[in-house]
Measured scan of single mutants.
Amino acid sequence: LVRYRTISKIPQITLNFVDLKGDPFLASPTSDREIIAPKIKERTHNVTEKVTQVLSLGADVLPEYKLQAPRIHRWTILHYSPFKAVWDWLILLLVIYTAVFTPYSAAFLLKETEEGPPATECGYACQPLAVVDLIVDIMFIVDILINFRTTYVNANEEVVSHPGRIAVHYFKGWFLIDMVAAIPFDLLIFGSGSEELIGLLKTARLLRLVRVARKLDRYSEYGAAVLFLLMCTFALIAHWLACIWYAIGNMEQPHMDSRIGWLHNLGDQIGKPYNSSGLGGPSIKDKYVTALYFTFSSLTSVGFGNVSPNTNSEKIFSICVMLIGSLMYASIFGNVSAIIQRLYSGTARYHTQMLRVREFIRFHQIPNPLRQRLEEYFQHAWSYTNGIDMNAVLKGFPECLQADICLHLNRSLLQHCKPFRGATKGCLRALAMKFKTTHAPPGDTLVHAGDLLTALYFISRGSIEILRGDVVVAILGKNDIFGEPLNLYARPGKSNGDVRALTYCDLHKIHR
């Protein structure tokens, strides 16, 4: 019993810090008490220290592992850092350059016999395009090294910054494609005289377009951006097909006994025919423009016929181009109408809503002055909100995010209106959640004399007048207030005048 009563005193000691020596009952000389009392004092002292730490809000209350900052290894790049964003855009520009100039170089340097010394005699450094290609190869190699040090988000939505895990993730992902696209074939085969082989191998750079397509997928929600990307894709495919079309004609031209190829026909049409040795002929500019003209006309199913396939190889390629053109029509131009419709969806919704308003007016036989006010209010409210119901949009977000959005939407009023000066951010967040926005066209009466005042109004834009009878008592403008002081009276009061809008007004109100 003594032991039980001794232990039962522990909660009292913990909360009230009572010393055991003052209790005459606990001072009985028993061996059990002498053993338990020192333990009680020690526990009391420890609990006292913990309570003191909690009340003082000291940093040592938290466990040590929670006080440590997340460790980022040296030379690790955050995937959302500004440097990584700028670097990704730079790589994107280099990939676009590669997609345009690599097929052009591979096709127009394929057994090209233009006048001038061969590239091997001039030297590697004197070729501007080769120098640019070398810079692109170096940048792609540097990009691989950067990807080995860039964080990523795993399946659990955690940012991984450990170098080993980053390397394994990159090896399992895009490393092989990036490595093949970054191989400097110019340096590996330079001086061997195989410019045709170098041009063909350099087309491996186009593998990076797969990554670019995935990154550009984030802009699919913007109709104008999608339309622009589709047109660029169409032009890029036409450019690639033009390079292939020229390569076919250029390879067949020296081996044909009869002059029936499209390059021969082009030379005869523009007065620059090929001679018996295969030299001469149109310039590279004429060849490229004509090839691009043929691919565009074939892809769009126009086909004027002034550039036509004559050999079997050219006919087979033309059939493939027609098939590609039909697929592009289905996948690209078939979506253009939907994209344009999405661009004008706001206008369509406006006309639909206006039609419903006019049908309501016609069905209920609203008189002319009231009908005009109804239409003007709808037009003004639509121009202010673009038909978007803010309350319906915010309803799907958590309250903390709703408060931040409301604070942002009402920031101008909260910053410049005098009653809100000096208020804490928590108070402003709470008030912003209570605001209701209303609009009024010129001549609209917001409050009639004798109406119950259940709200306090803040003028965000425009001006109003307060009338008693036919006498203008006051004219209020931006950041002015009218209405009933909230919670100042037990019952809502009545208006002693009319409140009429002089201009288009936007008002925020808080109800009782």
Rank of each mutant, 00 (worst) to 15 (best):
D268G: 02
N306D: 01
L355Q: 13
S220F: 14
A106L: 07
F101Y: 14
A107N: 01
L229W: 08
N368Q: 12
L279T: 09
A204I: 05
F304Y: 14
P117T: 12
D186V: 09
F185P: 01
K111D: 11
T233H: 01
E359Y: 03
L413V: 10
E221G: 13
A182P: 01
C417Y: 12
V168D: 06
Y104A: 01
N312W: 01
V321K: 01
R429V: 03
K202A: 01
I96L: 07
E376S: 12
L227S: 01
S161A: 09
L263Q: 01
C122A: 01
R421L: 08
P118C: 04
W89S: 03
L197V: 08
T150M: 01
S412W: 09
G396K: 03
I141K: 01
K215T: 03
S331C: 08
Y344I: 01
M139H: 03
R259V: 04
Y377Q: 10
A167K: 01
G346Y: 06
Q402C: 01
T203H: 03
G426R: 03
L241K: 01
Y293H: 13
S258N: 12
A291D: 01
A430E: 11
P282W: 01
V159P: 04
Q353F: 03
T352Y: 13
G123T: 06
E221Y: 05
Y384Q: 13
G426M: 03
F378L: 08
E196C: 10
Y274T: 01
N156P: 04
P442I: 04
G346P: 12
R342M: 07
N386P: 01
V136I: 14
S192L: 05
S258P: 05
M390C: 10
I244M: 05
D143Y: 01
L93E: 01
M390S: 05
Q353P: 01
D143T: 01
N410W: 01
K84H: 01
E252L: 01
L92C: 05
L241V: 01
L90H: 03
F363Y: 08
F234E: 14
N368A: 10
M139R: 01
A403V: 04
G271Y: 02
K66C: 03
N335L: 04
Y80C: 11
Y344A: 07
F420C: 01
A242M: 01
K202T: 01
I146Q: 01
W245G: 01
G346V: 07
S345L: 08
G305W: 01
M433T: 09
N154E: 13
S301K: 12
K84P: 01
V180Q: 01
F333T: 03
Y293I: 01
V289M: 01
L266I: 01
I339S: 04
W262Y: 01
V307L: 01
N250G: 03
T424E: 07
V289C: 01
E314R: 01
F185I: 06
I248V: 01
K172R: 13
I91G: 01
D186N: 12
K84G: 01
L206A: 04
G346L: 03
W382M: 07
D217E: 09
L355Y: 06
S345Q: 13
K272H: 01
R208E: 03
V180K: 01
Q269A: 11
I237T: 09
G346W: 03
R208F: 01
Q127D: 14
I72A: 14
C400A: 10
I183C: 05
Y170N: 01
I166F: 01
A155R: 13
Y65A: 11
I144F: 01
K84S: 02
M251R: 04
L279E: 12
G249H: 01
V160L: 01
L446R: 03
V357T: 04
E314K: 01
L207Y: 09
F83G: 14
R373L: 03
L197C: 11
F190P: 14
W240H: 01
R218C: 08
A432D: 03
C232P: 01
Y246R: 01
H408E: 06
V131Y: 04
R342L: 13
I332R: 03
E64V: 05
E114R: 15
Q341L: 09
C427A: 09
F397C: 05
S313D: 05
L414E: 02
I405W: 02
F185N: 04
V160Q: 06
G278N: 03
V100T: 01
A247K: 03
K215G: 04
R208G: 04
I405T: 04
A181V: 01
K111R: 06
V447D: 02
K434Q: 04
E375K: 11
A213D: 04
V336Y: 04
A235I: 11
H239Q: 01
T311P: 01
R373H: 06
S194H: 13
P128A: 11
P103F: 01
H351S: 05
H364V: 02
V321W: 01
N154A: 11
V210D: 05
V302A: 03
A330S: 01
F108E: 01
I237R: 01
G199R: 15
S412C: 07
V86A: 07
L241Q: 01
A99K: 01
I144R: 01
L355G: 13
C427L: 08
W174D: 01
F175S: 01
V95E: 01
I270T: 03
S194K: 15
V132M: 14
E114S: 07
P367N: 06
M322D: 01
I135P: 01
I361E: 01
I72F: 12
M328G: 05
T76H: 03
P117W: 06
Q269F: 01
R211N: 08
P163S: 06
L394T: 03
L299Q: 01
R371N: 06
P70A: 07
R356N: 13
Y329C: 14
A291P: 01
D186C: 11
G303M: 01
E121P: 14
D178F: 01
L197G: 03
C400M: 09
G193Y: 13
S345H: 12
A403K: 10
E114T: 15
R421D: 07
L216F: 09
F140Q: 01
Q127K: 01
C400E: 09
L206R: 01
S326F: 04
L200I: 05
V302F: 03
I270N: 01
L197A: 04
I284A: 03
E195G: 14
V447P: 02
H351T: 05
Q269Y: 01
Y170P: 01
V447M: 12
I146R: 01
D137H: 03
D268N: 14
S412P: 11
L90Y: 03
L230E: 04
V95M: 04
Y219T: 05
A99N: 01
P369F: 03
L187G: 12
N368M: 08
W240D: 01
P419R: 03
S276C: 04
E221Q: 13
A449D: 13
G199T: 11
E158A: 13
D444T: 06
L292Y: 01
C243I: 01
A247G: 01
Y350S: 02
L207C: 13
W87F: 03
T438Y: 10
